[in-house]
């Protein structure tokens, strides 16, 4: 009896110790994330001012307006190319594809696309869009490159959101004499919209923060506001990289200010998307 009790006591002690160790690891991760955010705020907030956000880089004090505008248009361009194709591919996988070798191959391609290093997308974009198609260093080349990189995220989240829509609804629509496409466009897609939008925003905000893919396809360290899709642009991530690594006249205020703007922009958009989804979910529950 007492042997058994000892064993239990020992097991309990081990459990408590492991709980402590694993908890410490989790806490360390959480704290470093908090530290990252705190440090960004401390270093970045002093830079925040109207002239910083809306001014030009060569003025004194310098601003980052062209970089903000460039990142905005790159993201819009990415969305314009990646959303139609990505959502259509997600619809294909969820609504049209049959189980089989081709579908398996498509899924495998998507998983592997997601793992291709971003710099490799940059090489690909430089070879195809900049050189072969002669789009040059431009908003267009950069958007197309980023669209390729974002595609797997959008396809996967679209497919997942569509799969959440109960089969009953599709059956009901078909039984009313609606065609398959009408069923998808009028019933299935609206029901899945919150999931698709949130997933797409997640993917697009990641694209907005990418540096390597646009380095040789779209950005230049100092240029004006773009006037057409064939203009090169400035972009926040690249601006941060250039300002942080440039040996002459380092400008820490610009660097940390830009970093804070980038992180805040990405986080705010993500949080808003997640909040919207959870509100939409509350309204529509299966």
């Amino acid at each position: 009896m007492s042997v058994q009790r000892n064993r239990v006591r020992q097991a309990r002690a081990v459990e408590a110790a492991m709980k402590l160790v694993t908890g410490a690891c989790a806490a360390a991760v959480m704290l470093s994330a908090a530290g990252l955010l705190g440090y960004l705020l401390v270093r970045g907030l002093p830079a925040m001012s109207w002239s910083f956000l809306t001014g030009m880089p060569l003025k004194d004090p310098p601003g980052i307006w062209p970089a903000i505008v460039g990142t905005f248009w790159l993201t819009v361009g990415t969305a314009a190319f990646a959303l139609p194709v990505g959502i259509a591919a997600g619809i294909y996988l969820s609504e049209y594809a049959k189980r089989g070798r081709l579908t398996r191959l498509i899924r495998l391609s998507i998983a592997n696309m997601a793992g291709v290093p971003s710099i490799v997308y940059g090489l690909f974009g430089a070879a195809l869009f900049v050189m072969l198609l002669r789009f040059g260093l431009s908003l267009l080349s950069g958007s197309l490159t980023l669209a390729c990189l974002t595609l797997p995220v959008i396809i996967t989240s679209t497919e997942e959101a569509l799969r959440q829509v109960p089969q009953d609804l599709r059956q009901a629509s078909l039984a009313l004499g609606a065609t398959r496409w009408r069923t998808i466009s009028k019933v299935v897609l609206p029901a899945a919209a919150p999931g698709i939008v949130t997933g797409s925003i997640l993917g697009l905000s990641r694209a907005a923060g990418e540096t390597a893919p646009v380095m040789f396809t779209a950005v230049f360290f100092l240029t004006g506001l773009p006037k057409s899709p064939f203009d090169k642009v400035m972009a926040l991530p690249y601006h941060i990289y250039i300002m942080a690594t440039q040996p002459v006249r380092p400008q820490p205020l610009v660097v940390w200010g830009s970093a804070l703007v980038l992180v805040a922009g990405v986080s705010i958009v993500n949080v808003a998307a997640a909040a919207w989804r959870s509100r939409a979910r509350k309204k529509v529950r299966w």
């Binding site: 009953d168 609804l169 059956q171 629509s173 039984a175 009313l176 004499g177 009028k186 019933v187 609206p190």
Partner: peptide, 28 residues
């Protein structure tokens, strides 16, 4: 699709579309 306009179906579990009452009836 044409056949199903002539032959309607009601399913085991109620499956209204996630839209208004009016839009549900007007769907077909």
């Amino acid at each position: 699709v044409e056949l199903r306009m002539r032959v309607g179906q009601v399913f085991q579990k109620p499956n209204p579309f996630p839209m208004s009452i009016y839009d549900n009836v007007a769907y077909g």
